[in-house]
Every structure is written in structure tokens, then in C-alpha cells.
Design a protein around this nucleic acid. Structure first.
Length: 740
DNA sequence: TCACAGTGACTTTTT
DNA sequence: GTCACTGTGA
């Protein structure tokens, strides 16, 4: 360690590469930080170091991440070293975009009270511009438009065709944009695209922004998309310091527009870039890193780095070849029981899978076996009908041009306002260019019978709610204060100030949503009323003013991870989670299930997609600290049909010796009723030169066999068609020996 | 406006 | 196998 005695403790505890990354200055910096190498530590230390030692003002630092969780952690850890860091802008990309747009709203002809549309809202908006299209078509358009925005493409961009979408994508995209501007709202893509565009076209805004942010840091850079890259370029002035941190091997969001090229070619885009690799891994044992590194080494498109464990050795990963999902559950239960017996906790263990549907088998069986579990990611609180209903009332209060919110709530619960009445009110608003609320007020007398009464009812609800927000209040300044902060949820509001919860309660009662959903709960045994109450609770920390409402809605729109109190009741539980959702997490014991060809990877995945799946496997493997178990089932039920499968090609790619077969080599086998796992039997009946037959591929010859004691039999067959395939012969009956 | 049955679709999802 | 969309009929 170089002169560690003169460094303050927060720096002297870093390893040499980490320290170099923290101290670096004078050129763009790309930190290639492998899994578990202390990436967050480096970036937070760097922020603190700049403020503390280099006299950089915290206000001039902008650090962006992808998730709220990461932003929160980054802020807290930087503040722990240097409290002044609370004044730095540490946000997610999208929350920075929203902040930037509200602050510069007038420069881009937006009302700063805009609401952020989610994917579902976007789909609804497309439905209104394409009334003849089916919901599915509209969803497809919404996805394509969202992707177009990820790639920073406009309706008239020549390369829009490359998205491979429908022929009239341009037309629909243009219609959608026009309608979205009419509502005055923005979608997720706009939160990145519009700030970039504004910085490009408005010299004054650009100058102001460049003057303010002198240091720009981006975390998880491998997940950035083209639009985010573009925004980064526009944010960076000639004198700015740009530092990005990421791991090209962990880029797993291509399907959402993430562009690995951003990190692969960062040094081309920012000439003079210094690259620092962090390869000392503090999380996993060497055996785990060996297999992970071996897996990802099969990718061509990578910058390349090798992780070294600070924990040498460790248990080899174990592969269990199983019959079916029942055995998979049995196997996982067995591992869990064993772990508990040796003094471990349930929360040490994570069961990973590729698709959410795979969690079902575990969910069904674990309660019976008294295994507590925690299902991550599947609960979509904000997508629930009743939650969206209530949020739509709130959105409409904030933005009376919000067509999607209006359509959702005007006749819910039913008040006799039919579709034609809704359309005519909207048409009139569109013609006059006035808000939907104004259109309703102006035309209320022109409506007939039932619709007239219904509309009056609706307007009364909105106006009553509205008036709650317009009470004279001295807290607007306080709300502004919160808003100006770092994006953290407000800590609360002054005593004596009324809470936003009052507004939500009022709407739930007066609108009839309470009655409406209470009835549904009684019939279907659902928890809709409770879910709305959950939202009321969440609103309690915001003040009862328009700004408080805006803050509340933005937090909800941009941070959907908010857990309800009903969750997380069992503190010690096994984690059931998709591989995608594990990014950034770690567990002592990881079981990766469903390693079958057709499921992971899918058979239609090749090229870039296949490489991304391999990276996903890499991410999954590097979550483990001590132990990894892998499972592959011979029979897998998908969409209700039973398929016979082959082990994942990712398994056959791995060098023999990097993992062991579970149950092999005299280890205690396990039994499920009368059946035994396939892995126990090691066969030597397969030899090089042997003629074999396969149902799909026809005749072939074994060109290679591998038969190490620990890794069991593996044969490579060349078929007459020219195809070469690898098999675990005991595992698949598809391969038969041809008797001479 | 609602209830029903037939049809088809079905990865991953930070924001 | 499950869910949600879609169209029909009351």
C-alpha cells in the first residue's frame, strides 16, 4: 500500500485499483468493475473524496443510477463519509430527467405539473388514437415506441425501420406523440429524450446546466441505452469530469433498449479515456468465480477481465440432473433442510429461475413443507386496478388535460356516462384546446338525462377534492424545499399541516370507489380496499398541497419498488427470484433452476441474444458467496404441456471439472418416493466411435466422450447431417446406441 | 351493463 | 394450465 499512513482511513482501506479509481482526475474514466469488486464503494468514496479533499462543491456533482434502491444506497454511503454529499444530485436517470424537465418546463412548452405515464398508460393512449386496433396491437406499438425512444429515434428517423416493427409505426408514433403533448404528460422515454433535446437546442439551458454540473458519474453504465448515452454527452461540457462505472459482462437489459456498445466503445466516444479494472472479488469463493468466468468466456463481445477471489478455494458448484419439476422442488427442499441443519438461515438461500412462471411449483409446495419464502418482483402493486383507479383521480386533479386518467375515472364507478358522452367531451376539449375539466364544466348542461346527472356527480367529486388542495397554506415553501432536495422521500411535514392522506380518503369515499371495490372484495375475496388504504398510508408523509401531490405521484411513478406493509412479514425466508431481479444482490447459497435447452436459453436465441443470456447466467452465478447448486429437469411443463428437454448448452459449454454432479461419487443420493435422481448412475457404455441414433438428428457417431469421476458422462456426437451435439446419455433417452 | 364462454397467447422488465 | 381479451346474449 502506498503511503497508507498519510491517507485518511476511508481511503487507506481501499485496494490499489480502487484507490487509483478514486484519486483519478484529468480525463474521462471508465471503471470496469466486475461483480462483487466494490464498485459502489469506489463511486461513493470518489464523491466524498472530491468534496472533502478536492474542494469540489457538492452541488456541482451529478451521479446517476438506474434504480431508486441504488441511488438511495449511493447517497447514504457517500453521506456516511462526508455529510456535505447530501447536497449532491444523486438520482436515477429518470428522476433526474423529471427534475430537469420540471425545472425547465417552460423552455420546452410543458406544464411543470406533468404526470408521468407508465407503459400501460401509453398503451391506453394508443388505443384512443387507434380505436380500431386490438389491445394487443396497441401494446406492440407501445413497446416499439418506447424502444424507439430508448434509441433516441423520432417518428421521421430513417433508422426507425430497424426496430423491425409494423409498417405504419411512423404514423402511429407521430399520432401518439401529438396526443401525448396534448395531454401535457410525458412517458418514461421522454424523461431522457426531452432533456437531451433541450440541452441540444437551448443554448441558455445548456450553459446553465454545464456551469452547474462539473462532475458527472454514471453507475451500471452497461445498462444505459442510446438516449441515455446521448443525454450524457449533452450534459458533459468540455471541462466536465465524466466517470462511468459498469461491467459489460452484466449487461442484461438489451431487450429494453440497453446498449452494450455504450460501454464497449466508451473510450471512442470520450477520447483520452483512462480504463481501470476492478478484478478483486470480495464476494464469492474462487470455485464460483472459476465457473462464472468460464461461462462468460464463451462470449465474443466483451472487453474481458478475470475476477480473482479474495476467498480461495471453496466448494465446487453442484449440478443436479432431475426428472421433473417435482424433483426440482424436492431437491431444493433437501438443500434447504441441509442448510438449516448445519445452522444456516432460510434467508441465506435464493432460488433463481429464468421466468416468473417457474416460481409456481415452489409456491405451491413450500407451505406444505413449512418452508417460508419471499417472492421478489412478482407483486405488481401499482398495476392493480384499484390502485390505478385512485392514482388516476389524483393525476387528473394535478393535470386536468390527462385524457387517460379521465377515461379511467369519469365513469368509475358507473355514473351513466357512456362512451359516446366521454368521446364528445374529449372532442370538444380537443377542438377548443381547453382542458378536459373545462370542457366538462362548459358542456355539463348540454348533456342528456343520465349522463348529465353523472357528470355533475363526477365534477362535484373533482371539485371537492380540488378545494382540499387549494386551502390557504403556508407549506408551499416547505413542499418546495423537499422537492429541491436530493430526491429522497420527504421526511414529513410540519405539525399542524394536514396530510395528503386526507385527500385520498376523501376521493375513495366520495367517488364511490370504496363501495365499488368493497363489493368486489366481498364477492372475490380480494384485498382491493386494503390496497387503497396502503396508498393512503403512503401519502401520509406528504403535505396536503398541490406540490405535495405532485411529489407523491412522481415518487410512485418512478419508484414502483415501494413495498406494502403486508409483505415481508416473515423475516427469515428463502428468496424466490428471477435471474434478472438478482442484479446487485448476493446470497451465501444460490440454486439456479431450470437449466434446460429451450428454457434457458430459449431455442430461438442466437447471436447477441444468446450472449445476453450467457451474461444473465454469469450474473446469476456471481450472486453466490459460498455455494451454488444448478438444476436441470428432463421433463419440463411449459404452458401446460410436457416437454422432454436437453440440458442447457451453457452447461455443456463449461469445462469439465469446474462443477460436480450432485449425488455422484459415492455421495448420499436422495430419493423422491421410489424414484432416484438420474445423476447417481455413471455409465461407461458410451465410447468414441460408437454409432448412435437420435430421434431428431438421425444417425451419428460419438466423436468424443468425457468421463471424469466428478463430472459424469458427456458425449459429443457428430450426426450425418453434419450437426454436432453434446449429450448426457443417461439423462436423455433421445440418444440410442445402434447395435451392430 | 353485465355475465358467460370460447379463443388464443404465453420471456426477461431497473424507470 | 392460466389468464385475459373478445364477442354474444339477456
Amino acid at each position: 500500500m502506498t503511503g497508507s499512513q498519510i491517507l485518511p482511513p476511508y481511503l487507506s482501506s481501499l485496494n490499489p485499483e480502487q484507490l487509483r479509481a478514486v484519486l483519478h482526475e484529468g480525463s474521462p474514466l471508465l471503471i470496469l468493475a466486475g461483480a462483487g469488486t466494490g464498485k459502489t464503494r469506489v463511486i461513493t468514496t470518489k464523491i466524498a473524496y472530491l468534496v472533502r479533499e478536492k474542494g469540489v462543491s457538492p452541488e456541482s456533482i451529478l451521479a446517476v443510477t438506474f434504480t431508486n434502491k441504488a441511488a438511495k444506497e449511493m447517497r447514504e454511503r457517500a453521506m456516511a463519509i462526508e455529510p456535505q454529499c447530501s447536497r449532491a444530485t444523486i438520482r436515477t436517470f429518470h428522476s433526474f430527467g423529471a427534475w430537469f424537465l420540471r425545472r425547465n418546463a417552460s423552455a420546452i412548452a410543458l406544464d411543470s405539473n406533468f404526470v408521468i405515464y407508465d407503459d400501460d398508460d401509453s398503451t391506453q393512449l394508443i388505443r384512443t388514437v387507434l380505436p380500431q386496433a386490438s389491445k394487443q396491437e396497441c401494446e406492440r406499438y407501445a413497446t416499439l415506441i418506447s424502444r424507439a425512444k430508448d434509441y433516441n429515434l423520432e417518428p421521421d428517423s430513417p433508422s426507425l425501420d430497424r426496430l423491425g416493427g409494423e409498417s405504419d409505426l411512423r404514423r402511429v408514433y407521430a399520432l401518439y406523440e401529438e396526443r401525448l403533448r396534448t395531454t401535457g404528460n410525458v412517458d418514461f422515454g421522454d424523461l431522457i429524450r426531452l432533456p437531451a433535446r433541450l440541452l441540444e437546442t437551448d443554448e441558455a439551458v445548456a450553459q446553465r446546466t454545464h456551469q452547474r454540473f462539473r462532475v458527472i458519474l454514471v453507475d451500471e453504465y452497461q445498462d444505459s441505452n442510446v438516449a441515455q448515452f446521448f443525454l450524457l454527452q449533452k450534459l458533459a461540457a468540455p471541462g466536465s469530469y465524466v466517470c462511468v462505472v459498469g461491467d459489460d459482462d452484466q449487461s442484461i437489459y438489451r431487450f429494453r433498449g440497453a446498449e452494450v456498445k455504450n460501454i464497449l466503445s466508451f473510450s471512442n466516444s470520450f477520447p483520452g479515456t483512462t480504463i481501470i479494472r476492478l478484478e478483486r472479488n470480495y464476494r464469492s469463493s474462487q470455485s464460483i468465480l472459476d465457473i462464472a468466468g468460464n461461462v462468460v468466456s464463451h462470449n465474443k463481445n466483451r472487453l474481458g477481465k478475470t475476477l480473482h477471489a479474495t476467498k480461495p478455494g471453496g466448494a465446487k458448484p453442484q449440478l443436479a440432473l432431475l426428472d421433473d419439476q417435482d424433483q426440482e422442488v424436492e431437491f431444493c427442499s433437501h438443500i434447504i433442510r441441509g442448510h438449516l441443519k448445519s445452522g444456516g438461515n432460510l434467508s441465506d438461500i435464493a432460488i433463481l429461475y429464468r421466468t416468473n412462471a417457474q416460481s409456481l411449483a415452489f409456491e405451491k409446495e413450500f407451505p406444505r413443507r413449512k418452508i417460508g419464502y419471499r417472492l421478489v418482483g412478482a407483486l405488481r402493486f401499482y398495476e392493480r386496478e384499484e390502485v390505478k383507479d385512485l392514482l388516476a383521480y389524483l393525476a387528473f386533479l394535478l393535470n386536468p388535460r390527462d385524457e387517460i386518467a379521465f377515461r379511467r375515472i369519469v365513469n368509475k364507478p358507473t355514473r351513466g356516462i357512456g362512451e359516446s358522452s366521454v368521446d364528445s367531451l374529449l372532442d370538444l376539449a380537443l377542438q377548443k384546446g381547453c382542458s378536459i375539466m373545462d370542457s366538462c364544466l362548459e358542456n355539463r348542461d348540454a348533456m342528456k338525462g343520465k349522463a348529465k346527472a353523472g357528470l355533475k356527480e363526477f365534477l362535484d367529486i373533482i371539485q371537492a377534492a380540488s378545494s382540499l388542495l387549494e386551502l390557504p397554506s403556508s407549506d408551499i415553501a416547505a413542499a418546495e424545499e423537499t422537492r429541491r432536495g436530493t430526491g429522497a422521500a420527504p421526511k414529513g411535514h410540519d405539525k399542524g399541516t394536514q396530510s395528503l392522506s386526507i385527500l385520498l380518503e376523501n376521493i375513495i369515499e366520495k367517488s364511490g370507489l370504496a363501495e365499488f371495490h368493497k363489493n368486489k372484495d366481498e364477492i372475490a375475496g380480494t384485498q382491493k380496499l386494503n390496497n387503497m388504504e396502503e396508498l393512503v398510508n403512503a401519502a401520509s408523509i406528504y403535505p396536503l398541497v398541490k406540490e405535495g401531490l405532485a411529489e407523491f405521484l412522481e415518487t410512485i411513478d418512478l419508484d414502483r419498488s415501494l413495498q406494502t406493509s403486508a409483505e415481508d412479514i416473515s423475516p427469515d425466508a428463502v428468496t424466490l427470484i428471477t435471474m434478472h431481479n438478482t442484479k446487485g444482490l448476493e446470497f451465501p447459497v444460490v440454486i439456479i433452476t431450470g437449466l434446460e435447452q429451450g428454457l434457458f436459453p430459449r431455442d430461438d436465441e442466437s447471436g447477441e441474444e444468446l450472449e445476453e443470456q450467457r451474461r444473465l447466467f454469469y450474473v446469476a452465478l456471481t450472486r453466490a458467496k459460498d455455494r451454488i447448486y444448478l438444476t436441470a429437469c428432463r421433463w419440463r411443463r411449459i404452458h401446460g404441456r410436457l416437454f422432454e428437454t436437453l440440458p442447457s448448452r451453457f452447461l455443456t459449454e463449461i469445462d469439465a471439472g469446474l462443477y460436480e454432479f450432485w449425488g455422484a461419487g459415492g455421495r448420499e443420493g436422495y430419493r423422491t418416493g421410489n424414484r432416484t435422481g438420474y445423476a447417481g448412475a455413471v455409465s461407461s457404455e458410451w465410447k468414441t466411435g460408437m454409432a448412435v441414433y437420435h430421434d431428431e438428428y438421425g444417425q451419428g457417431v460419438i466423436i468424443k466422450t468425457s468421463m471424469t469421476e466428478s463430472s459424469g458422462p458427456l458425449v459429443i456426437v457428430q450426426f450425418e447431417t453434419g450437426k454436432v451435439a453434446q449429450f448426457f446419455p443417461k439423462y436423455t433417452r433421445k440418444l440410442e446406441r445402434i447395435k451392430e
